[in-house]
Design a protein around this nucleic acid. Structure first.
Length: 206
DNA sequence: TGCCTGATTGCCT
DNA sequence: GGCAATCAGGCAA
């Protein structure tokens, strides 16, 4: 499956900047995985920033370990880890090499390859295919094997639509599902999108 | 070596 | 709205 002509792949300079700037800029970009012959893609509608020193919720907070090693690698790579022993969560490594900062992609609006997504996820409403970090990795076929791979080349990457580039309205909120440093407002989502995660469950908690 | 917890999801009532 | 599934990392002993 071919990608639209207007799509352009993001380069290293996109990731090698302030983590908050990347988390913001990722909203509206397109996460693409071309694996197993089929291309799957979704527009990013929700991200969370994970910082180094000030952020006790970050895996990198206690320093480098075998699990989080790719967070400390060069920016523009993937950091994929297993959550709750069950789910894979996909992050992009940001900022300077060695800083240990990353942005978690929490939700996508499905754009391409919906049939493949449904097959991997089991029959599911379009809205639920990629709504949540564990769901979008299943839908796109992203696995723990992708930990540390480059997003600058190869089957996995982030693109932008040069025919529909413009300022988007964002909401900034505390992050979801964490207990440490939950006061930090490091979650960004596309205002008004039906595809952001954290529905009734999260609002009920507040 | 062993216990506890979590950047979640989906099924159950 | 409640809770089990499931396991590796982190920390205490």
């Amino acid at each position: 499956m071919k990608l639209p002509r207007a799509w352009r792949r993001l380069g290293a300079e996109f990731y090698a900047r302030d983590t908050l700037a990347v988390a913001r800029a990722l909203i509206g970009k397109i996460l693409v995985h071309r694996g197993g012959g089929a291309a799957c893609a979704g527009r990013i509608v929700e991200t969370e920033a994970y910082l180094a020193e000030v952020d006790a919720a970050s895996h990198a907070f206690r320093g480098r370990t075998a699990r989080n090693a790719s967070m400390f690698g060069p920016p523009g790579r993937a950091y994929v880890y297993r959550s709750y022993g069950v789910h894979a969560c996909f992050n992009v490594v940001t900022a300077a090499r060695g800083s240990g900062e990353a942005v978690l992609v929490r939700a996508l609006e499905p754009v391409l390859g919906l049939a493949s997504m449904r097959r991997r996820r089991g029959a599911s409403a379009v809205r639920d295919l990629c709504r949540g970090p564990g769901r979008l990795t299943v839908a796109l076929g992203i696995e723990l094997d992708h930990d540390g791979v480059s997003l600058l080349r190869g089957p996995l990457g982030v693109w932008w639509d040069s025919s529909a580039d413009g300022a988007l309205a964002l909401d900034v909120t505390p992050r979801i599902g964490i207990t440490r440093a939950s006061e930090l407002e490091l979650r960004f989502c596309l205002r008004g999108s039906r595809f952001v995660s954290g529905g009734s469950r999260v609002s009920a908690r507040a």
